[in-house]
Amino acid sequence: MSRDAYVEKLKAQIDEWNAKLDQWEAKAREAEANTKISYERRLNELRQQRNEAQSKLDELQSAGEQAWEDLKSSAEKAFSDLQAGFERASSHFQ
């Protein structure tokens, strides 16, 4: 897969996660106090992971042809960690 195709794939995934975060944030605003605290904690964790994944994506975009292959594995780990976090949170917000 080319760097450009890979970057576009990761951008689409971040967009999908951002949409889920928006939905869950709306749900958290409507929740009762105790539930709201739990929701906010989980949302903050996911935002932090999303920011790390976005940072890796930014590094990939600015990397030269040779360097992007080296950065690819760390980006994949960040995205994998974020995917796992979203899967865990998904059951919490359903």
Rank of each mutant, 00 (worst) to 15 (best):
E69F: 04
A67W: 11
A5V: 11
Y39W: 12
D81P: 04
I37N: 14
E59W: 04
L60Q: 08
D4V: 09
W68F: 09
A33I: 08
R50N: 05
L43K: 08
W24S: 01
F79D: 01
K11A: 04
L82F: 15
K20N: 00
A28I: 04
L60P: 10
F93E: 08
Q66F: 07
I14H: 14
K27R: 06
A84V: 09
L57F: 01
R50L: 03
L21M: 02
A75M: 04
Q49R: 00
R47F: 03
R29L: 05
Y6R: 10
R47H: 04
Q66G: 10
A33D: 12
A28R: 02
Q83D: 07
M1H: 10
S74A: 09
K20I: 01
K72H: 06
D15T: 07
A26D: 13
E40R: 12
L43M: 05
W68S: 03
E52W: 14
R42W: 09
A63S: 12
S38L: 06
A28K: 03
A67M: 04
E25H: 05
N44Y: 12
F79E: 05
S90D: 13
E76K: 00
K9M: 14
R41L: 12
D58G: 07
Q94R: 08
E76M: 03
E45I: 06
A33T: 14
A78M: 01
Q83H: 06
K72Y: 09
S55A: 11
E65Q: 14
Q83A: 15
N51D: 13
S55Y: 15
F93A: 09
K9W: 14
Y39P: 13
A28T: 01
K77N: 13
K36D: 08
S74Y: 03
E45T: 11
K56I: 06
Q23K: 04
R47I: 01
K27I: 04
A31L: 00
S38E: 11
L10E: 05
A84F: 08
Q49G: 02
V7P: 11
F86Y: 10
S62N: 13
E30P: 14
S55G: 15
R88F: 06
D4M: 06
Q23W: 04
S2Q: 07
E40N: 12
A19H: 00
S90E: 11
L60N: 05
A63F: 00
S73W: 08
S62Q: 04
A33R: 15
Y39K: 09
E32F: 10
L71V: 05
N34W: 15
F79G: 00
E69T: 07
L21N: 00
L10K: 05
L46G: 10
K36W: 05
S90T: 11
S2R: 12
K20S: 00
S55V: 11
K72C: 01
R3F: 15
A78E: 04
W17C: 00
D81L: 01
Q83E: 07
T35R: 12
D15Y: 13
R50C: 02
A67E: 14
H92S: 15
Y39M: 06
Q54P: 06
Y6S: 08
K36N: 15
